[in-house]
């Protein structure tokens, strides 16, 4: 493998590991759940992304195999990370009475869907 490729792969591995560490560090350090949520959802996606790009580059340069499984994992994680964050945030809002009072008004006549019953499709039409 050429020197430049080796440096690029090493740099991407270190970058990915750094972001993964920062994400978990934020999870451990920050004081409440809504703030903790920011660390893992962002830092880990780029962390995993950089690691998977490094892995793809490594297999292309070292074995001359173009492996596309990494792309699949990256896409999957980028699609699922917002869903997990949303579900955790909703569970938190449902359980935490203090944060419920801090929520801003919706600007509509109904409340937030976690606390207020969602309108059904039929009710919206009428």
């Amino acid at each position: 493998m050429s020197g430049f490729g080796e440096i690029a792969v090493s740099a991407l591995i270190c970058l990915g590991a750094f972001f993964l560490f920062v994400g978990s560090f934020g999870l451990a350090k920050l004081p409440d759940l809504m703030r903790r949520l920011h660390g893992p959802t962002k830092a880990t996606t780029l962390g995993i992304g950089a690691l998977l790009i490094a892995s793809m580059l490594y297999f292309i340069l070292e074995d001359e195999i173009v492996s596309l499984h990494e792309l699949l994992i990256t896409t999957f994680l980028f699609l699922t990370a917002p869903v997990t964050a949303l579900m955790v945030a909703k569970a938190h809002i449902l359980l935490d009475k203090e944060d419920q009072e801090k929520l801003p008004p919706t600007g509509r006549e109904v409340g937030w869907s976690v606390l207020d019953a969602p309108q059904t499709h039929e009710a919206k039409k009428s």
Binding site: T41, A81, P82, L86, K90, T106, V110, W112
Partner: peptide, 14 residues
């Protein structure tokens, strides 16, 4: 959720 310092937490009921 993926971009600078913001996480979407809920949708209004409508």
């Amino acid at each position: 959720t993926m971009t600078p310092g913001t996480v979407s937490a809920s949708l209004s009921a409508d």
